[in-house]
Simulated assay, not measured.
Amino acid sequence: MFLPAVHAETDTAVLLQFIRENPLGILITGISSSEQDFLQCSHVPFVLDLPDESGDAGPQGRLRAHIAKQNPQVKAMIEAVENKPPSVLEFDDEVLVLFNGKHDHYVTPKFYVETKPDTGKVIYGKLSLLYDSKIPETDAFLTKQLHDLSEHTERSTMGYIGGDKPQPWKVNDAPDRYIEIMKRNVVGIEIRINKIEGKFKMSQEKPPGDRDGVVKGFESLGTETGEAISALVKARGELYDAKRQEVKNE
């Protein structure tokens, strides 16, 4: 990932919070296979475990997900480890997971002529595959994964938190047979984070006049995306100015 210093976000806590707020990632792998393409990617909603939330999440945290066994990417994974015991199988090579922000937009030259704002986060890590639900360890992983992902999306994405709003749907609301069949048809994915990188390319390095033009330009669109980008450009610009001032005062 190309990370110019002016756009790079080096605060790991900020990057991890971004993933919590934007859990739909793109899992990218390169696996030699006799039948599947070498390069594969899948859009996957991830659960993020922070280092201090679980004793086995690793020093930099962990991503958890589940993917359908019929996915060509999963078929390539299973082929790569088919001669190994069907338990928790770790791949030798790293995988890449890309997370993007919810909003993106073309920037008209009427705002300014340079680059357009965007955000992106990537994680590099070692992937472990859990694909036989008959094994207790795999079954426990999938049970927890389905529960945690449901809780996160029901509460954070749908806003179902109870009280004046609807109660969140729970996996236990589904029939046991349905859950059992579902676990048979998916594999568990666990990625221990080795490195996390991210950037906010939101015009923060531009002169105040240019930044103000972008803020007002997007705000004038009157759309949800326009308002979100306008607010982010303003916030990242203020943060950039504050950091520059700190450097001057040192």
Rank of each mutant, 00 (worst) to 15 (best):
M1V: 09
F2T: 08
L3Y: 15
V6Q: 12
A8M: 06
D11P: 01
T12N: 04
V14I: 12
Q17I: 06
I19T: 08
R20K: 11
E21C: 04
N22K: 01
G25E: 01
G25K: 05
L27K: 02
G30D: 08
S33K: 07
S34Q: 12
Q36V: 05
F38W: 12
C41I: 03
S42L: 04
V44H: 05
F46E: 07
E53I: 02
G55F: 02
D56H: 10
G58Y: 09
R64F: 00
H66T: 01
H66F: 11
I67T: 06
A68D: 13
A68P: 07
K69T: 02
P72V: 01
V74M: 12
M77N: 00
N83A: 06
K84Q: 10
L89Q: 14
L89C: 04
F91I: 02
D93H: 10
E94D: 03
E94M: 02
V97Q: 05
N100K: 08
K102R: 14
H103E: 09
H105W: 00
V107I: 00
T108E: 06
K110N: 07
F111R: 08
Y112H: 15
V113R: 10
T115W: 02
P117K: 07
K121A: 07
I123N: 02
I123H: 03
Y124H: 09
G125L: 07
L130E: 04
I135C: 04
D139P: 02
F141G: 05
K144C: 03
Q145V: 00
E151M: 09
H152E: 10
T153W: 10
E154M: 09
M158I: 01
G159V: 06
P168M: 06
P168F: 03
K170M: 13
P175Y: 04
D176Q: 13
E180A: 12
E180V: 03
I181E: 15
M182Y: 14
N185W: 09
V187R: 04
G188C: 08
E190F: 01
E190V: 11
E190C: 04
E190Q: 11
N194A: 15
K195I: 01
I196E: 01
I196M: 05
E197L: 10
G198S: 06
K199D: 05
R211V: 13
R211K: 12
V215W: 06
G217M: 09
G217W: 11
S220G: 13
T223L: 05
I229R: 12
V233I: 15
V233E: 13
V233M: 14
A235C: 06
A235M: 13
A235L: 13
L239I: 10
L239S: 15
K248W: 14
N249V: 14
